[in-house]
Every structure is written in C-alpha cells, then in structure tokens.
Design a protein around this nucleic acid. Structure first.
Lengths: 220, 220
DNA sequence: GTCTATATCCAGATAGAC
DNA sequence: GTCTATCTGGATATAGAC
C-alpha cells in the first residue's frame, strides 16, 4: 500500500509559512517546543492510523516527549485533538481574513478559498484530513460539528453576500454554497484517498469555470 | 443536544424495502435473526457514538445477543463493521442496477442517484453516515477506501459514459463526476450534521437544475 | 516543566458447558 | 448456535522525584 501523495508538512510549518507573509501577525497561540513536537507527531499519527488507533505511548515515541509532559500540557488525550483543532481553524480563519482583503468580488473570493483548500491538501494532507474527518462526536465532544465551525460558516457567508450583491443569481444560499464548494471538497477527498494522482492545481481552472458558470448572475 | 433529524430505519429494513419491490431478488446475504439484531444495534451505536466508542459489551446490551454468539458469527469487532459494509454496498449496488435499467439518459440516471442518496439519508441517516465516514484505514483494514468501492466507481462510470455519448460536454470525467455528485454529497453532510433542517427532497429540483446546467452538452 | 514508574480499568477476545 | 464466566493485554491517566 504505497502512498504516492505529496510529503506532509506539519501544522506548525503551515502556520509558520503563513505568518512569514504577515506584517503584523494576529495574536497567535504560543506553544512551547515540546507542545509543538507533540502536536506535529499527533497530527501525523492521527492522519496515518486514526485518532483511536493512536495511543499515548505512540505519541511519546514519535514526539520524544514524555507521558508526564504530555499530560501536563494537554490534560488528556482529547486535549491534544482540541489543541490541533484550534490551531488549524485559527490558521484557516487568518487565511480567510487575508482572502477577504485581497479579493473584493465574490467570484474572486470563492476561487481563492478553493485554491487555499487545494494548497493545504497538497502541502499538508494530514491537516486537511484532520479537518475533514474530525468527528466532534467521537473525539471532540467539547466542539461543535466542523460544518458549523467558524471558517465553514464564513465560507457560506461569502456566498450569501454574493447573492445579496447580485453577483450570484437568486438561489437558495445553502444550495449555492454546496454548488461552489461541494465539487472542490469532493475532488480533494478523492485526492486524499489516492484516487486522483495529479496535483489538484491542475484541475482548478476547469473546475472553477464549470462551478462558477452555473451560479454567476450574468457575465463574470 | 437534541437531534431533530428523521428517525433512523435499520439497514435491514432498508434492504427489505428494496427487496419487496423486486420480482426475482438477486442472491442476497442471508442473515439469522441474531445476526440482524447485532448489525442493527451496531449500526445505530456506530452512528451515535462512533465505532471506537462502541464496545462489544455495548453491542451485547443493545442487541440482546451474547458476547459468545457475536464472536461466533462475526469473528471479531472489525467483522461486524465488515458485514455492515458489505450489506450496505451490496444494497447500493442493487439500487444502482435498478436505476440503470429504469433510466436511459445520463441526466436521468445521475438525478436518480442523487435522489437515492437523499432518500437513504432521510430514511436511514445511520446508513449514510456509515458510508460517508467508514474509514477503511481505521476499522476496515481489509477493504479499499470507500471512494474506490464498487458503487462509487459505478457512479463515476455513468458520468464517463455520458461524456462518450455526448450527453455531457467534453470535460475531464473526474471533474464532471465531482460537479454532479459533490454538491449533493455536501448537502447531505450538512443535513446529517443538523445544519440543514429541511428534508433534502425540497432542495432536489433546484440543486439538480443548477448542477446539470453546467454540464449538459446542449439542451437537456 | 520534565521525567520514570506504576496504578487502574476495561477493552477485546476465549473457554467450555449446554 | 447460544450462553456465562473469565483471561489478558494494553490503554489512559497519576504519583511523585528531579
């Protein structure tokens, strides 16, 4: 079972890369070196074998941080998942802020969001897998479903605004959001599952043309 | 955390309902009463709290079948998940057969498939959840990823055929399939997560018009 | 804050009578 | 085929020195 998918980068690296582009970074979750080691190892393990197939001893081995330290920092095992969740959704929020500023049209924003999702998938599949498959009911009892998380509602809000503004034709906003993001999410799942072998970027233009064609108000 | 979603029917009932419409049913996985009780209980528990949060003693309590009998029939815990997987994908295959016969046009077939997915979601959310979230890596090691399962490839084949036939405009078949099924799957996930409160059927026409509009070759 | 050693519990799985 | 009683390993989590 060889994986021919791109080498994962860690959540920490993904965040770093983002920050380096910022002039005045938003107050960010500060993490000690040990905490980062644990989160990096955990993200990789959760992605490779799943949350429940990952034991604390596994994380101890992979992170080279002791059991005691892990419990000191994260309280319990779900604390690790929570910390990852907050890290990732926080980064995503920041990225959406950037997109909102950099693009004024709804079409531009939605396309940039899809590009962002593709980019995360290619650069850090483990991060995308965590977002897609983080089942609140199973190991994030303190959190709402990922579909109602801040970044997701934000994405829907962009679409709803586009309808108000008349950039998108009159249509149920929920359906519009599904038409915009649904195909992209589907492709990215197929990519993560190894069904698609090409980098997602190669599919972006054709995907976007078709998605947007069915929704834009007139010419756009 | 009140769930206002439709009452679940069991996989067994879903299959039964299907069979009752058949004249000459395909050879089907025969299951004893005890086996059905176990599978019904397990499907519900897996959906409610997740596979890993469900213990064998939980299933014993819910199914009123003893530990010994469960192991006798299913070998081990993954055997229960496997049996569910085969049951559900088998039923789905049969339903796709019916659709292939009942509809000749690609548009008709794809629309019927989406309708089927919506119907399963409404009638047996647990079944749909199992299909969507059954992570082969985590608890179905013997199975390929769900995306490459027979029903899923079949769905993509319908689309590819539509392109060959000239019913769908010339476009990458993978993208075409994502454009057709992606929005529907997205809506159904939102429904399962409680974000959408209306039955999916009410969204079908508007969804389909938009999806198909971006793909049909000319007028359709 | 970090570590090792250890306690406790309960999961998955088996044995063997009926 | 079904059941009860039981084994055993390894998981989460803690204690307490440094």
């Amino acid at each position: 079972m060889q994986k021919s998918r791109p080498k994962a980068i860690t959540a920490a690296e993904f965040k770093l890369q983002k920050d380096s582009a910022d002039i005045a970074p938003v107050p960010v979750l500060e993490r000690s070196a040990a905490q980062r080691k644990v989160l990096d190892a955990a993200l990789k393990l959760f992605s490779d074998v799943g949350y429940f197939n990952t034991s604390i001893p596994d994380i101890v081995r992979a992170s080279k941080v002791s059991t005691g330290s892990i419990y000191h920092h994260f309280g319990d095992k779900t604390g690790i998942a929570s910390a990852l969740f907050e890290q990732i959704t926080g980064d995503l929020q920041a990225a959406l802020d950037d997109i909102e500023i950099a693009h004024i049209t709804t079409g531009g924003r939605c396309r940039a969001i899809i590009e962002l999702m593709f980019e995360i998938t290619e650069r850090s599949p483990a991060t995308m897998e965590f977002m897609l498959y983080a089942k609140h009911k199973e190991f994030l009892p303190a959190h709402a479903p990922i579909c109602s998380s801040a970044p997701m509602t934000r994405m829907r809000d962009f679409v709803a605004l586009g309808i108000e503004r008349g950039e998108i034709r009159v249509i149920d906003p929920t359906i519009a959001a599904a038409l915009i993001y649904g195909p992209a999410i589907r492709l990215l799942q197929l990519r993560l599952d190894g069904i698609i072998e090409r980098p997602l970027f190669e599919l972006l233009d054709e995907l976007w043309d078709s998605s947007w064609r069915s929704l834009r108000a007139k010419a756009g």
